[in-house]
Simulated scan of single mutants.
Amino acid sequence: MKFERLNEIENILKINGSVSVNDLSKRFKVSKETIRKDLDYLSSKKKIGRVHGGAYSFEYNKSVPYSARDKMLVNEKKEIASIAADLIDDGNTLFIDSSTTSIQVLKKLLSDGKKLKVITNSLTCANIALKNDNIDIYMIGGSLNKKNMSFKTQTPEIYNSFNADYAVLSPSGIDVKCGITDKSASSSKMLSSFIKRAKHTLIVADHSKLDSVSAFSVSPLTEIDGIITDKINDSNSWQSAAQKYSFFIKEI
Protein backbone atom coordinates (compact mmCIF):
# COMPACT_ATOMS: atom_id res chain seq x y z
CA MET A 1 0.00 0.00 0.00
CA LYS A 2 2.78 2.44 0.90
CA PHE A 3 4.71 1.63 -2.29
CA GLU A 4 1.60 2.30 -4.39
CA ARG A 5 0.97 5.55 -2.54
CA LEU A 6 4.54 6.74 -3.12
CA ASN A 7 4.26 6.00 -6.84
CA GLU A 8 0.97 7.84 -7.06
CA ILE A 9 2.39 10.86 -5.23
CA GLU A 10 5.20 11.01 -7.80
CA ASN A 11 2.67 10.83 -10.64
CA ILE A 12 0.53 13.57 -9.08
CA LEU A 13 3.57 15.83 -8.88
CA LYS A 14 4.59 15.14 -12.47
CA ILE A 15 1.13 16.18 -13.62
CA ASN A 16 0.42 19.08 -11.25
CA GLY A 17 3.91 20.33 -10.45
CA SER A 18 3.22 20.78 -6.74
CA VAL A 19 0.94 19.46 -4.03
CA SER A 20 0.15 20.17 -0.38
CA VAL A 21 0.26 17.81 2.58
CA ASN A 22 -3.40 18.60 3.27
CA ASP A 23 -4.50 17.63 -0.24
CA LEU A 24 -2.58 14.35 -0.17
CA SER A 25 -3.89 13.51 3.30
CA LYS A 26 -7.47 13.90 2.09
CA ARG A 27 -6.83 12.06 -1.17
CA PHE A 28 -5.27 8.97 0.42
CA LYS A 29 -7.30 9.12 3.66
CA VAL A 30 -4.20 8.93 5.84
CA SER A 31 -2.80 11.28 8.47
CA LYS A 32 -0.79 14.37 7.62
CA GLU A 33 2.14 12.89 9.52
CA THR A 34 2.08 9.84 7.25
CA ILE A 35 2.15 12.08 4.19
CA ARG A 36 5.02 14.12 5.62
CA LYS A 37 7.02 10.92 6.09
CA ASP A 38 6.20 9.86 2.52
CA LEU A 39 7.37 13.20 1.15
CA ASP A 40 10.50 13.18 3.29
CA TYR A 41 11.33 9.71 1.98
CA LEU A 42 10.86 10.72 -1.67
CA SER A 43 12.90 13.85 -1.05
CA SER A 44 15.73 11.83 0.52
CA LYS A 45 15.84 9.78 -2.69
CA LYS A 46 16.00 13.04 -4.69
CA LYS A 47 12.79 12.19 -6.52
CA ILE A 48 10.93 15.33 -5.41
CA GLY A 49 11.61 18.64 -3.72
CA ARG A 50 10.23 19.51 -0.28
CA VAL A 51 8.83 22.85 0.86
CA HIS A 52 6.93 23.80 3.99
CA GLY A 53 3.48 22.23 3.78
CA GLY A 54 4.04 20.25 0.60
CA ALA A 55 6.32 19.20 -2.23
CA TYR A 56 7.12 19.93 -5.86
CA SER A 57 8.43 18.11 -8.91
CA PHE A 58 11.99 18.71 -10.09
CA GLU A 59 10.57 18.62 -13.61
CA TYR A 60 8.08 21.43 -13.08
CA ASN A 61 10.04 24.03 -15.03
CA LYS A 62 10.18 21.68 -18.03
CA SER A 63 6.72 20.13 -18.10
CA VAL A 64 4.25 22.12 -16.04
CA PRO A 65 2.27 25.05 -17.50
CA TYR A 66 2.97 28.61 -16.40
CA SER A 67 -0.30 28.74 -14.45
CA ALA A 68 0.89 25.87 -12.23
CA ARG A 69 4.48 27.11 -11.88
CA ASP A 70 3.19 30.51 -10.83
CA LYS A 71 1.69 28.94 -7.69
CA MET A 72 4.83 27.05 -6.67
CA LEU A 73 7.43 28.26 -4.14
CA VAL A 74 5.70 31.64 -4.15
CA ASN A 75 7.19 32.92 -0.88
CA GLU A 76 10.69 31.86 -1.92
CA LYS A 77 10.34 33.58 -5.29
CA LYS A 78 9.10 36.78 -3.65
CA GLU A 79 12.10 36.86 -1.31
CA ILE A 80 14.47 36.25 -4.22
CA ALA A 81 12.72 39.05 -6.11
CA SER A 82 13.07 41.45 -3.19
CA ILE A 83 16.85 41.01 -3.11
CA ALA A 84 17.16 41.40 -6.88
CA ALA A 85 14.93 44.48 -6.98
CA ASP A 86 17.17 46.30 -4.50
CA LEU A 87 20.03 46.08 -7.01
CA ILE A 88 18.08 47.74 -9.84
CA ASP A 89 17.73 51.51 -10.08
CA ASP A 90 14.82 53.69 -11.06
CA GLY A 91 14.89 54.32 -14.81
CA ASN A 92 16.85 51.17 -15.70
CA THR A 93 16.21 49.15 -18.84
CA LEU A 94 15.75 45.42 -18.30
CA PHE A 95 15.75 42.22 -20.27
CA ILE A 96 13.25 39.87 -18.58
CA ASP A 97 12.44 36.31 -19.61
CA SER A 98 9.07 34.61 -19.15
CA SER A 99 9.92 32.72 -15.94
CA THR A 100 7.71 33.10 -12.89
CA THR A 101 10.65 34.21 -10.72
CA SER A 102 11.69 36.97 -13.12
CA ILE A 103 8.08 38.16 -13.22
CA GLN A 104 8.14 38.40 -9.42
CA VAL A 105 11.16 40.70 -9.72
CA LEU A 106 9.23 42.94 -12.10
CA LYS A 107 6.24 43.05 -9.75
CA LYS A 108 8.48 44.02 -6.82
CA LEU A 109 10.17 46.78 -8.81
CA LEU A 110 6.81 48.24 -9.78
CA SER A 111 5.47 47.99 -6.23
CA ASP A 112 8.54 50.00 -5.18
CA GLY A 113 7.46 52.71 -7.61
CA LYS A 114 10.41 52.38 -9.97
CA LYS A 115 10.02 53.44 -13.59
CA LEU A 116 11.37 50.90 -16.07
CA LYS A 117 11.85 50.00 -19.69
CA VAL A 118 11.41 46.26 -20.20
CA ILE A 119 12.35 44.14 -23.21
CA THR A 120 10.73 40.72 -23.04
CA ASN A 121 9.07 37.80 -24.81
CA SER A 122 6.62 37.37 -21.91
CA LEU A 123 2.89 37.81 -22.42
CA THR A 124 2.53 38.11 -18.64
CA CYS A 125 4.86 41.12 -18.68
CA ALA A 126 2.71 42.71 -21.35
CA ASN A 127 -0.42 42.20 -19.26
CA ILE A 128 1.30 43.78 -16.25
CA ALA A 129 2.34 46.75 -18.40
CA LEU A 130 -1.27 47.41 -19.38
CA LYS A 131 -2.08 48.15 -15.74
CA ASN A 132 0.97 50.21 -14.77
CA ASP A 133 2.09 53.58 -16.13
CA ASN A 134 5.62 53.17 -14.75
CA ILE A 135 6.63 50.55 -17.30
CA ASP A 136 7.39 50.95 -20.99
CA ILE A 137 7.47 47.54 -22.60
CA TYR A 138 9.04 46.35 -25.83
CA MET A 139 7.80 42.95 -26.96
CA ILE A 140 9.85 40.39 -28.84
CA GLY A 141 7.02 38.83 -30.80
CA GLY A 142 6.58 35.64 -32.76
CA SER A 143 4.57 32.47 -32.32
CA LEU A 144 2.80 32.23 -28.96
CA ASN A 145 3.58 29.34 -26.62
CA LYS A 146 0.35 29.24 -24.62
CA LYS A 147 1.76 26.80 -22.07
CA ASN A 148 4.62 29.13 -21.12
CA MET A 149 2.84 32.43 -21.85
CA SER A 150 5.73 33.51 -24.07
CA PHE A 151 6.60 34.27 -27.68
CA LYS A 152 9.13 32.44 -29.84
CA THR A 153 10.59 34.75 -32.46
CA GLN A 154 11.26 33.63 -36.01
CA THR A 155 13.93 36.33 -36.40
CA PRO A 156 16.48 35.94 -33.56
CA GLU A 157 18.64 38.71 -35.04
CA ILE A 158 16.10 41.12 -33.51
CA TYR A 159 17.88 40.61 -30.17
CA ASN A 160 20.76 42.68 -31.51
CA SER A 161 18.46 45.71 -31.71
CA PHE A 162 18.31 46.10 -27.93
CA ASN A 163 20.59 46.93 -25.01
CA ALA A 164 19.84 46.93 -21.28
CA ASP A 165 21.25 47.78 -17.87
CA TYR A 166 20.22 44.39 -16.44
CA ALA A 167 19.20 40.99 -17.70
CA VAL A 168 16.98 39.33 -15.09
CA LEU A 169 16.78 35.66 -16.01
CA SER A 170 15.77 32.30 -14.61
CA PRO A 171 17.10 29.57 -16.93
CA SER A 172 16.19 25.94 -16.36
CA GLY A 173 19.75 24.83 -15.57
CA ILE A 174 22.55 26.42 -13.51
CA ASP A 175 25.61 24.29 -12.90
CA VAL A 176 29.15 24.84 -11.60
CA LYS A 177 30.74 22.99 -14.54
CA CYS A 178 28.29 23.54 -17.39
CA GLY A 179 27.26 27.10 -16.54
CA ILE A 180 23.90 28.46 -17.67
CA THR A 181 21.74 26.13 -19.77
CA ASP A 182 18.15 26.03 -20.96
CA LYS A 183 15.64 23.53 -22.25
CA SER A 184 15.19 24.65 -25.87
CA ALA A 185 17.38 25.96 -28.66
CA SER A 186 15.25 29.07 -29.17
CA SER A 187 15.11 30.07 -25.50
CA SER A 188 18.83 29.44 -25.00
CA LYS A 189 19.62 31.70 -27.95
CA MET A 190 17.44 34.45 -26.52
CA LEU A 191 18.95 34.20 -23.03
CA SER A 192 22.46 34.19 -24.47
CA SER A 193 21.72 37.35 -26.45
CA PHE A 194 20.22 39.03 -23.39
CA ILE A 195 23.34 38.29 -21.35
CA LYS A 196 25.67 39.59 -24.06
CA ARG A 197 23.74 42.82 -24.55
CA ALA A 198 23.14 43.67 -20.88
CA LYS A 199 25.61 45.54 -18.68
CA HIS A 200 24.79 43.21 -15.78
CA THR A 201 23.11 39.81 -15.50
CA LEU A 202 21.21 38.55 -12.46
CA ILE A 203 20.20 34.89 -12.32
CA VAL A 204 17.13 34.53 -10.09
CA ALA A 205 16.20 30.92 -9.45
CA ASP A 206 14.94 28.60 -6.74
CA HIS A 207 17.18 25.76 -5.60
CA SER A 208 15.61 23.17 -7.93
CA LYS A 209 17.46 24.78 -10.84
CA LEU A 210 20.88 24.77 -9.17
CA ASP A 211 23.15 21.82 -10.01
CA SER A 212 20.86 21.10 -12.96
CA VAL A 213 21.94 20.91 -16.60
CA SER A 214 19.58 21.35 -19.56
CA ALA A 215 20.20 20.40 -23.16
CA PHE A 216 21.27 23.76 -24.63
CA SER A 217 24.14 25.97 -23.51
CA VAL A 218 23.46 29.65 -22.78
CA SER A 219 26.66 31.06 -21.29
CA PRO A 220 29.54 30.28 -18.94
CA LEU A 221 29.36 31.55 -15.37
CA THR A 222 32.03 34.14 -16.22
CA GLU A 223 29.38 36.18 -18.07
CA ILE A 224 26.98 36.66 -15.15
CA ASP A 225 27.16 39.06 -12.21
CA GLY A 226 25.22 37.15 -9.59
CA ILE A 227 22.92 34.31 -8.59
CA ILE A 228 20.10 34.85 -6.10
CA THR A 229 18.41 31.71 -4.79
CA ASP A 230 16.51 30.37 -1.80
CA LYS A 231 18.91 27.55 -0.91
CA ILE A 232 22.33 26.25 -1.96
CA ASN A 233 22.77 22.51 -1.63
CA ASP A 234 26.54 22.39 -2.20
CA SER A 235 27.69 25.66 -0.69
CA ASN A 236 31.43 24.97 -0.90
CA SER A 237 31.37 24.25 -4.64
CA TRP A 238 29.29 27.31 -5.41
CA GLN A 239 31.32 29.65 -3.24
CA SER A 240 34.49 28.40 -4.93
CA ALA A 241 32.93 28.95 -8.35
CA ALA A 242 31.78 32.44 -7.37
CA GLN A 243 35.31 33.36 -6.33
CA LYS A 244 36.89 31.78 -9.41
CA TYR A 245 34.50 33.34 -11.94
CA SER A 246 33.91 36.66 -10.14
CA PHE A 247 30.18 36.59 -9.47
CA PHE A 248 28.22 36.75 -6.22
CA ILE A 249 25.82 34.09 -4.97
CA LYS A 250 23.26 34.96 -2.33
CA GLU A 251 20.69 32.93 -0.41
CA ILE A 252 17.49 34.47 0.94
Score class of each variant (00 low, 15 high):
F3C: 01
R5Q: 03
L6A: 00
L6F: 07
E10M: 12
N11S: 10
I15V: 06
N16E: 14
S20F: 02
V21E: 07
D23P: 00
S25T: 03
K26Q: 10
K29C: 00
L42S: 06
I48L: 09
R50P: 02
G54F: 09
A55K: 08
Y56S: 08
Y56C: 14
S57P: 05
F58V: 05
E59Q: 09
Y60E: 08
N61F: 14
K62S: 03
Y66I: 13
R69I: 07
D70G: 05
D70I: 14
M72G: 05
L73Y: 13
A81Y: 06
A81G: 03
S82Y: 10
S82L: 14
I83Y: 10
I83M: 04
A84N: 01
I88K: 12
D89V: 07
G91P: 10
F95D: 06
S98W: 11
S98T: 11
S99D: 14
S102M: 01
I103E: 13
K107N: 12
D112F: 03
K115T: 09
K117F: 09
T120C: 07
L123Y: 01
L123C: 02
L123S: 02
I128R: 15
I128Q: 14
I128H: 15
A129Y: 07
L130E: 15
D133I: 11
M139Y: 07
I140Y: 02
G141R: 00
N145F: 02
K146G: 01
M149K: 15
S150A: 15
S150F: 03
F151E: 00
E157H: 09
E157T: 12
I158E: 08
Y159A: 14
Y159G: 14
S161E: 15
F162D: 07
Y166K: 06
V168S: 01
V168D: 02
S172Q: 08
D175N: 12
D175M: 01
V176D: 00
K177I: 13
S187P: 00
S187L: 11
M190T: 04
S193R: 05
F194A: 13
I195L: 09
A198I: 11
T201M: 11
L202D: 01
I203N: 10
A205M: 04
D206L: 09
L210W: 04
V213S: 01
V213T: 10
F216K: 12
S217L: 06
S217I: 02
T222K: 12
E223T: 12
D225I: 01
D225G: 04
G226Y: 04
T229F: 08
D230G: 05
N236M: 03
W238G: 01
A242L: 10
Y245C: 08
F247G: 07
F248I: 09
F248Y: 12
I252E: 02
